[in-house]
Each structure stands twice: as C-alpha cells, then as structure tokens.
C-alpha cells in the first residue's frame, strides 16, 4: 500500500452559520493549503452544511496523552461548585 501517495492529512473544522463554533468535521488529504481548503469544501459542504471552513495540518495539533488523562481530567470531577447550577435563571433569558 503506497501510503506516501496520499499526501498530508489536514483536519477540517466547519462553522454551520455565522457566529457558531467551528466543529471538527473530519479530515482530508492535501499537498498544500489551497488544496486542503478545496478538498474540505468538496468533501464536507456538498449539502450546504457550512458557511466557513478551517483546515489545520494534523501535525500542528498537539494532543493530550491518554496516559495523562487521570491527572488532567479527574480532579474536575468533584468540583460541583464550579458548575453554574446554583444560580436562578433570570426570567426571559434563553441563551444561557
């Protein structure tokens, strides 16, 4: 299998509408920035899913090590006072 013919991997993030968060959509192969954007456009927006795209070389993403997950994430489990659930919702507020 000639894996080297498949070019670099780029991660694709899409915004569904203006102001919304960019959400990871998947990945594409590409040799350069322009190709990455075009491939992302042709692969992930064919049915009107997005209005804006970010592409990031997969090698530029720094990921946490699964072995560190206890150290990184467990301490947040028993800090219920960090949740905003003790507040009374103001009347009429919808977007909280």
């Amino acid at each position: 299998m000639a894996t080297d013919s498949q070019l670099e991997i780029w991660e694709v993030f899409m915004q569904s509408k203006s102001g919304a968060n960019y959400i990871h959509a998947g990945s594409v192969h590409a040799s350069d920035k322009r190709m990455a954007l075009q491939n992302a456009r042709d692969t992930y927006t064919r049915r009107g899913e997005g209005t804006s795209i970010w592409v990031v070389p997969a090698t530029a993403i720094v990921a946490s090590d699964p072995n560190d997950s206890e150290m990184l994430f467990d301490p947040a489990n028993d800090k219920i006072y960090r949740m905003p659930t003790f507040y009374t919702m103001p009347e009429g507020a919808k977007a909280i």
Partner: peptide, 12 residues
C-alpha cells in the same frame, strides 16, 4: 480519480 477527495471534487 487519483484520490478520494479529487473523486468527490470531479463528480461534484
């Protein structure tokens, strides 16, 4: 096509 992404592009 030479790669899946280009396959999609050309058929698009």
């Amino acid at each position: 096509a030479p790669m899946l992404e280009e396959d999609l592009a050309l058929t698009n």
